[in-house]
Simulated assay, not measured.
Amino acid sequence: MAAVASLSFSALSQCSDRKSVVSSARNLGSNAEGIRFRTSISSHYGGIRASSSSSRMVVHCMAGSSDAPTVADTKLNFLKAYKRPIPSVYNSVLQELIVQQHLMKYKRTYRYDPVFALGFVTVYDQLMDGYPSDEDREAIFQAYIKALNEDPEQYRTDAQKLEEWARAQTSSSLVEFPSREGEVEVALKDIAERAAGKESFSYSRFFAIGLFRLLEVAKATEPTVLEKLCAALNIDKRSVDRDLDVYRNLLSKLVQAKELLREYVAREKKKREERVETQKASETVTKCLGDYVCQ
């Protein structure tokens, strides 16, 4: 693992016609102004309180609290929660994502919603696919979400609920949620209502990826379905199209980077095995010489 930790994204990006995975990953998060990754945040964004809504899939973020953490606080919380070294091919993106998600989280208009959660879980699982340890991968997820003062179980649970709901939908029923009742339908209608008002909805690329995942699970491949779903949710489809292009490009880069990582790990493993064999041979020779001298 120590050997893997020395591998950087710059090394992975040196193959022909491959841009840095980090620069692609930096485009994962945005606010309404196409926000870029930054390392600080104003201190006037607010804390969290539970929603009084009947739907348990909604959490409010309130402005005006003087207790809002800084980016440094959030990153430090993550490092305290997960103390083991993370290979830099993963850690570079994770550190940038946690900065971006901090900036989203403490915006005045932010409110947790299940589509956002599904988008983040999708990105995280894609990013961490192939991580050396399944147990560590989940521990990192827990530490990441808790560092943002949110509930990792809620993220996982809501993402699973949305996927299960989408599996039961067709291209038509997927966009007919306003006329139906149910936990997911209520959550989607809440999003649509807030997005129409603009004051309590903060669009992000995680949200766009959540929509993409819904269509993917529902096998709704017709181009018009996304347009209808965006209309029903009062979301600008042009923003969604743009952000999904970024996401698809990132997935391609991740596949390339992970292939290089696997090759690197395989080479390092072979070198370690060769060193062990050399050491064993040396020890055998030394023992034989010792036995000969003592006879």
Results as ranks from 00 to 15, higher is better:
2 A>D: 14
5 A>T: 09
9 F>S: 15
11 A>V: 07
13 S>K: 10
15 C>D: 13
16 S>K: 14
20 S>L: 02
20 S>K: 05
20 S>V: 02
22 V>S: 06
30 S>P: 01
30 S>C: 12
31 N>G: 14
32 A>Y: 01
33 E>R: 14
34 G>Q: 04
35 I>P: 00
41 I>F: 09
41 I>P: 03
43 S>N: 10
43 S>T: 10
48 I>N: 08
50 A>N: 13
56 R>Y: 10
57 M>Q: 14
57 M>L: 14
58 V>M: 07
58 V>C: 04
59 V>Y: 08
59 V>F: 04
60 H>S: 11
70 T>C: 09
74 T>F: 00
75 K>M: 08
79 L>A: 07
81 A>P: 05
83 K>C: 09
85 P>H: 06
86 I>Q: 04
87 P>V: 06
87 P>L: 03
90 Y>M: 01
90 Y>F: 08
90 Y>H: 07
92 S>N: 11
94 L>A: 02
98 I>N: 07
99 V>C: 11
101 Q>P: 03
101 Q>R: 15
102 H>R: 08
105 K>A: 10
105 K>E: 07
106 Y>C: 02
107 K>G: 08
108 R>I: 11
108 R>V: 15
110 Y>L: 00
115 V>W: 00
115 V>E: 03
118 L>K: 04
121 V>N: 06
124 Y>H: 04
126 Q>S: 14
126 Q>T: 14
127 L>P: 02
129 D>A: 12
130 G>D: 03
132 P>Y: 12
133 S>H: 05
134 D>V: 08
135 E>I: 08
135 E>K: 11
141 F>S: 06
142 Q>H: 06
142 Q>C: 10
142 Q>L: 01
146 K>S: 13
147 A>H: 00
149 N>Q: 05
151 D>H: 10
155 Y>H: 10
157 T>P: 00
157 T>C: 00
163 E>D: 09
165 W>R: 07
168 A>P: 01
170 T>I: 07
175 V>W: 05
177 F>V: 05
184 V>N: 09
186 V>N: 01
187 A>F: 04
188 L>W: 03
189 K>S: 07
189 K>I: 01
191 I>E: 06
191 I>M: 09
192 A>R: 02
193 E>D: 09
193 E>F: 08
199 E>C: 06
203 Y>P: 11
205 R>H: 14
205 R>D: 12
209 I>H: 06
211 L>Y: 07
211 L>K: 11
212 F>S: 15
212 F>V: 03
212 F>A: 12
215 L>V: 11
216 E>M: 07
217 V>A: 07
222 E>L: 02
227 E>P: 08
232 A>P: 05
233 L>G: 09
233 L>D: 06
234 N>G: 05
237 K>Q: 15
240 V>Y: 00
240 V>N: 03
242 R>E: 13
248 R>V: 09
249 N>Q: 08
250 L>C: 01
251 L>D: 02
253 K>I: 03
254 L>M: 11
256 Q>A: 14
259 E>M: 05
261 L>R: 13
261 L>V: 15
264 Y>V: 13
264 Y>C: 14
268 E>S: 14
268 E>L: 08
272 R>E: 15
276 V>M: 08
277 E>D: 11
280 K>A: 13
282 S>D: 13
284 T>E: 12
288 C>G: 10
289 L>Y: 05
290 G>R: 14
290 G>M: 07
294 C>T: 11
